[in-house]
C-alpha cells in the first residue's frame, strides 16, 4: 500500500500541491539541462563538458572548494568547540556572526573580500610584505569559498558537540586517559560523521558558488576561471549545449556528494542507536 491510513485529512491536497510545485519549479526545468546536453550527442557532450578549458575550471572549483572545506574543517571545528564548551564575553555576537555567510548576499561578500585582500589594499598591503598574493588566483578563490562554507561546518558540528554526553569524557579520564588522549580517541571519533557531513556540505556549496567568487577569482580562461563562470560565458556566447554539458557534470558531482552525505548520516544513526 502506498500510504498507511491515518485520521489526519488533507493528504491528497497537500501532497498534490507539493508534487506539482516541485515538478514545475525544480524537476522539469532541471531535466531540461539533461535533455539539452543529451541533444548535442555523446561526442558533443564530452567535447564541451570535458574540454581542456572545462577541466581547468573544474580543477580550480573543486580544488579551491576542497581547500576551503579543509580550512573550515579545522577552524569551523574549533569555533564550534569554543561556542559549545567555553563561556566568554561576546559569545552571543560571535555566535550570530557565524551565520553571516547565510544572510549576506554573495555579491556583497565578493566585493568586500576583494577590496580587503587584493594587492596594495587594506590587508593586501600586509600580504604584499609577506609576498603572498591573495586575490585573482587560487588563494583568492579559496578565501571566498572559506567565507561561504564556514557556517556549514560550524552548524553541523554544534548540535552533535552539545549532545556529546559529558560522561563519555569522564569515563575516559577515570580510565586513566590524559585530556589529549580523551580528545583524540573519544571526542574526535564521535564527531567524525558530523565533521564529514559539514565538510561535504561546505565542499558542495563551494563547488557551485558564483557570486562571492567572481570578484576575487581573476576570471582568466585556463587559469582563474571557475566552473560556474564558464557556464555563464558559454551562455553569453549562446553555446547552450556546452553550458548544459558543464552543468550536467557539476550536477552529477553534486548528486554524488548528496549521496555520500546521506550515507554518512545513515551510518552515524546506526552507530548511535
Amino acid at each position: 500500500m502506498f500510504r498507511r491510513r491515518s485520521a489526519i485529512p488533507g493528504f491528497g491536497l497537500t501532497l498534490g500541491i507539493t508534487l506539482t510545485l516541485l515538478s514545475v519549479v525544480v524537476l522539469i526545468p532541471l531535466s531540461a539541462v539533461a535533455l539539452k546536453a543529451a541533444g548535442i550527442g555523446w561526442d558533443g557532450f564530452v567535447a564541451a563538458g570535458f574540454s581542456e578549458r572545462a577541466m581547468r575550471a573544474y580543477r580550480l572549483s573543486f580544488g579551491a572548494a576542497f581547500a576551503a572545506a579543509a580550512i573550515n574543517g579545522v577552524f569551523g571545528m574549533i569555533t564550534a568547540w569554543a561556542l559549545v564548551r567555553y563561556q566568554f564575553p561576546g559569545k552571543t555576537v560571535l555566535n550570530a556572526l557565524v551565520d553571516l555567510p547565510f544572510a549576506l548576499p554573495t555579491a556583497v561578500a565578493g566585493i568586500a573580500l576583494v577590496t580587503l585582500y587584493q594587492p596594495g589594499n587594506l590587508l593586501g598591503v600586509w600580504l604584499d610584505a609577506l609576498h603572498i598574493k591573495a586575490a585573482f588566483n587560487f588563494t583568492g578563490v579559496t578565501i571566498a569559498l572559506t567565507f561561504i562554507g564556514l557556517p556549514f561546518v560550524v552548524r553541523t558540528l554544534e548540535p552533535i558537540m552539545r549532545d556529546l554526553a559529558a560522561d563519555v569524557e569522564e569515563a575516559a579520564a577515570s580510565l586513566g586517559a590524559s585530556r589529549w588522549q580523551t580528545v583524540m580517541r573519544v571526542v574526535l571519533p564521535s564527531l567524525g560523521p558530523a565533521w564529514l557531513t559539514g565538510f561535504a556540505l561546505a565542499f558542495a556549496r563551494g563547488v557551485g558558488e558564483y557570486g562571492s567568487v567572481i570578484f576575487i577569482a581573476g576570471n582568466l580562461p585556463f587559469k582563474t576561471e571557475i566552473a560556474p563562470l564558464l557556464i555563464v560565458i558559454q551562455l553569453e556566447q549562446y553555446e547552450y549545449g556546452a553550458a548544459a554539458s558543464i552543468a550536467v557534470v557539476m550536477l552529477l558531482v553534486s548528486f554524488a556528494m548528496l549521496f555520500v552525505i546521506n550515507a554518512i548520516q545513515a551510518y552515524a544513526r546506526r552507530l548511535a542507536a
Binding site: V33, V207, Y210, Y240, A243
Partner: peptide, 19 residues
C-alpha cells in the same frame, strides 16, 4: 528532492530557465 536546489549551483539554477 525538496533539498535538491541546495546542491545545485545558482548558475545552473538560472541556466535551466534559460533552456
Amino acid at each position: 528532492l525538496i533539498d535538491l536546489p541546495f546542491s545545485v549551483s545558482p548558475v545552473v539554477a538560472g541556466l535551466i530557465y534559460v533552456l
